[in-house]
Every structure is written in C-alpha cells, then in structure tokens.
Design a protein around this nucleic acid. Structure first.
Lengths: 341, 341
DNA sequence: CTGAAAGCGCTTACAG
DNA sequence: CTGAAAGCGCTTACAG
C-alpha cells in the first residue's frame, strides 16, 4: 500500500540519501540547530545541495506543527477611502517587522459578507484579525462568537453593543476642533453638511461640532444642518445648494470629498473662499491637499492608531488579553479654505 | 514517550469518542463524503457536536495535504497610488470567487525588499504571485529563479530583460492619445512635463506623445519638454515654471498630480484654462476628477487588466503554462481642462 | 459501508 | 552527538 502522492519530490529525503545521513539530521543542519554537531564540511555539503535542489522550508508544515501561521487578517469596509490604504500600509509595515503577513479582504460595508470573511479568516487559521467594521447592522453572530472564544481580534472603531477592543479616532473631538477653528477664524454662521446620521463616526463628528457651538453661546436651532440621503455627487450638490440658501458663512463637512463639492457650488454662487465662506473637511486626503484652494481638514492619526492596535493584537496573540478601548484625538490641519484672518 | 503537545484540544477525537465511531468516520461525515453511509441520525449528532464544540476544519492541515494553500501573494510597488488600491480591490474581488485569499506586501520600489518579499511568499507556499515591479534595478535574482522554476507569477507591467508574463497598460498608446487629443482641441504648442525618464512606463508615454506630434508635422525640437529630478511638489513647481516660460499652450503630464500642480502654476501666471492652456494628466484619479477645473486624463483599464492577469495566473497554478504578454489600450477621459472648443 | 493506516513536511523529545 | 519515532490535523486509498 503506497498512499504517497507527493506534490513535489522531497528534496530533504534526496539530500539525506546523497549524503548518507538521516533525514532528521538534514533538518537539524538546515535549521542550524545548535545541538547539531555535524562536521563543518558535512554541513556545508548539505546546505549546498539544498541550494542546488531549490529546497525551501515548507511554511505550511511548520505552521501546522507550531499551531501559528504568522498571518493576520485585515478586513476593511471599503476600497475607496485613502484611509483604507493608509491603514493597510501601516499595518503591513509594522507587522512585517514581526514576520507577520497580511491577508486583505473587503466587506464593502456588507455585514453578511463581513461575517463570511471573518469565518474564512478563522478557518484559515490566521493568528489574529483587524477589522474596520461594516457601517450598519452589527448583530454579526460570528463576530460575537470570535469574541466569546477570545480569538485575537481588534477593531479600528468602537462597535455599538459589541464588547470588542478598539483603537479609534476621537470623532467627537474632531467635530469639536472643526467648529472651534471656524469660530476662531471669525465665522459667525457655521453649518454642517454630511450624510444622514446612521453611524457613530458621523454622529460624533456632529455632536462634537454642535457642542462647541453651544459652548460658545449658540443655540442648536441656530445651527444650519443639511443631511444628504447618500454620498453621490448629485445628492451632495443638492445638499450644498440647500445649505448655501440658509446663509451660512462657514461649513464643516464630514469628509473632504463632500467639502470640495460644496466648495465648487459655493464658488459657482459667487462666494469668495475663504473670505465669504470657510470650509473644513475631514480626513486630510490628497484631494483636499491638491485642491486649487487647499482644504482645511481634520487629520486622523492613522499611524499611531494602527501601531496601538497592532500592539494590542500582538499581545492577544501571545495570550495576554489586556482590554484595550482607546480613542485618539485627531489634529487640525489649517489650509487656505478657512484662512480668513 | 508522549510527544503530543496539542495547541488545542482535538475536537474530532472528542466527537469520535463521544459517539463511539472512528475518527476517520467523523471526518467523512463532516466533509459530507458521499461514500459515507452513516445513518442520518448519527450524521446529525456528529454535526451538532462539532458545532457545539466549535470545530473548524484546519485549513493549514488541508493545505499541507493538498499541496495548495488557496493563497495568492500580491506585491505592490507603492502604497500611495490610487491605481494600487484599484488593483488590490479588483484582485481580491476576482480571486475571492475562486476562494483565493490575498497576501499584500509593498516593495516601496526597493528591489532588495522586493526580492525578500518574493522569497517570503515563496516560502509561505502561496499558489501564485502577482507583482507590480519596483521601478528600478531589475536584476532581481530571485525573480529570475522563480521564473526558471516555472513558479506561477505574473506582472502588471513588462519588465526589461526579464521573461515574465504580464498584462500591462499600453503606455505608448496612452501618450499618443493624449497628444492627439491636444491637437484635436486646436492647441498648437504642446509640451511635456514629467520625471526624468528612467522607467519604461514613462518612456513610452513620452514616445507615444512625441510620435503623434511628429506624425502631424512637428519636429522633435519644436516640442518643449521639461523633466524633473523627482516628483516632490517643489521640483514639479519649478518644472512647471520652466515649462510655462517656453510658451506652451498645452501640456501632457505623466500623472494627474503633476498635472494639477502645473495647473495651479498656470493659473497663478494668469492663464485661462482651458482657453489659453490645455492640460491632460494620466491615471484618471480622484484628485483630477474633483479639481475645481476637472482634469482631462488617460484612464488605465485596471479591472480588465487585472482580470486578464488573474486568469493567466490561475492557469499557471493549474499547470497550464500559456505565455501571456499583453498590452491593453487605455482610454481618454475628456474633462474641462482641455475643452477649448 | 466503516475504519485503520499511511502520508503531507516539518519539529521535538528522547533513546542509543 | 545522531537518528528513529511520534505527532500537528487532515485526506486518500484500501483492507475488511
């Protein structure tokens, strides 16, 4: 009975045969095991043969033996945002130092797909998972199950009703900073433009923004707010028109793209920027930086957040499960679009 | 002698014990093997137990057995470009349909790091590799070795002196289309702005561009060309000034970012766009689309290219090694920055 | 139809 | 110091 169906010729066996030593000795030599006292000459011969025959240690076999795959799964929620690429870059860079490799998959904000991806990563035996959660519908059963199993998993945002560790941008602080900056620049009728408030990240931007206005003597009713149904250009442009009609002299938009579309509309209506209209976005993306009138924005500290997140995940993988719920304040990047003074 | 050091309790063994059947029968049931004629009741009991005990098939063990890991390594050359994210998105999406998962790593255009990443992917037993090659210095020994070994690997660009299969944008055609468009719009003094020509992708853009001008009666010497040392804002702005001084009335830039920086300079110098100055970029990125004066550009057909590349790779993984060297024509996207007529 | 056995390519503990 | 053996968790071919 020979059930041996090799995918490749076994090079280690061949080396053992050719040199007349045991297979396990070959392994010992190739792994530079210190308890291996083969002669220097023999060691060299083995290594040379290995090189000639194109030997590569089978990482899969090692993984099976060690119970660790040296692999981290990253689930992002969309593939458009510059922040996604930033997170990915930071994560691969940091993790590579510890010889981790990164699987990437995207949920497209679809909770069902997210659930499936979590399952797949889990079955593929990744050592840990970093998730940028889908925006809606987090009754994800599998996510809860992973947490219950104490599987190493961390999130880039806080998830409502789910006890997951996270390192998130402090969106409330971001909204507060945006509003404060507009007031400091001397604008007196600040407005808000964004999508309907269905996510915590947007809700907190909004609440931070209104908070600073209230702190400065505004009444909530005095603040002009336009929420658009979705973030298509068309909807945003309609929303911009609507907000412009209210007579605002400054606006905080929930992201840079929305801010730039608003800017275009404002200019079309004859507004001078920043003199007659201050505009501030969120995320500090290249579109804002490259704009003919460079955009003031709130920058998330992605590198710092990713590092913290990674360290937390690494500890979990190593079996130390310290809770980690952390918010990181973003920073204000002042550019032309708000420089009234 | 007990060398059994489990990482986890073996759930399959436990199920076998509890139900009084053999381990291999449990596997047969869990895999829904058709040659398995256990009673329906037994099957259900086994599956329920598996569920309760949190059984997951160990993908690593399966991989070891099958000699395939269901994994593709993607090496990108930088983490800034929108095209990188586009490729990544397309690749994960397509590959996921065949249950492949994607490892992502970045060479940062560093050939040594690229070499290392190729090695790592190879050792990690990925089934295939997709590479966006580092821009310079392709004497990469390991890449050549992989090709020699007929390891499944494909590239997003043609690599000089390396016999690798690829699906690339036809940059020459792109340059040609750009020049043709400027002429058709009635511009008469077209110029070129880009980095020093050290890569094929830039060289071909340039050659396509000059070709169409020559085809239309221009002499090479009549074409104003400014090449900048590197792509920092500062260098590009200096280059823009220099090109503006030559009296060009239109310019083809090797990418959208350069085009927008040039646009800003041209506007500062009082040029009306597109009336007095036509500007065309490359890559059709969001910065160009979102610009106050939307940018005409050349769009790479990334989705199509990635699909072709994936299909070629898949065949290689399956053992059919058909050569695949393919150029895909990009498309012209006309926006405001060249609409003179 | 069921189940014991061999094997995927390694590592580890241990007998000689 | 070397090497045979057992095991990681699965699958496959085959004996009963």
């Amino acid at each position: 009975m020979n059930t041996k169906i090799r995918n490749t010729p076994n090079i280690v066996e061949e080396i053992a045969e050719r040199t007349g030593i045991a297979v396990s000795t070959v392994y010992a030599i190739l792994a530079d095991r210190k308890s291996c006292f083969a002669s220097r000459k023999l060691k060299e011969r083995v290594k040379k043969l290995a090189d000639e025959l194109g030997y590569r240690p089978n990482y899969i076999a090692v993984s099976l033996k060690k119970g660790k795959t040296g692999t981290i799964g990253l689930i992002v929620s969309d593939m458009n945002a510059e922040t996604t690429l930033g997170r990915l870059e930071n994560m691969t860079k940091i993790a590579h130092k510890d010889s981790y490799h990164i699987f990437v998959a995207c949920s497209y904000n679809n909770p069902d797909l997210e659930d499936e991806l979590l399952r797949e990563f889990y079955y593929r035996m990744v050592d840990g998972i970093v998730i940028a959660p889908a925006r809606f519908g987090h009754e994800s059963k599998f996510l809860s199950k992973l947490i219950e199993l104490k599987f190493p998993i961390v999130s880039v945002t806080c998830i409502e009703n789910v006890d997951i560790d996270f390192v998130s941008t402090d969106y409330f602080a971001g909204g507060y900073m945006a509003g404060q900056h507009l007031l400091e620049m001397g604008y007196t009728k600040p407005g808000f433009l964004g999508p309907e408030i269905t996510t915590t990240a947007v809700k907190e931007r909004f609440e931070g923004f209104t908070k600073v206005l209230v702190d400065n003597g505004y009444k909530i009713d005095d603040v002009n707010v336009v929420l658009v149904r979705n973030e298509t250009n068309q909807e945003i442009e309609k929303g911009s028109d609507k907000l412009l009609e209210t007579g605002v002299d400054a606006v905080f938009c929930t992201n840079d793209r929305i801010a730039l579309l608003f800017m275009k509309k404002a200019i079309q209506k004859g507004k001078k920027i920043p003199e007659q209209m201050g505009i501030i976005g969120f995320d500090d993306t290249e579109v804002g930086r490259m704009s003919l009138i460079p955009l003031t924005s709130i920058r998330q500290k992605l590198a710092e957040a990713t590092t913290q997140l990674y360290e937390s995940l690494k500890k979990k993988i190593q079996g130390q499960n310290q809770p980690c719920k952390m918010f990181i304040k973003p920073e204000l990047i002042v550019r032309e679009s708000t420089k009234r003074r």
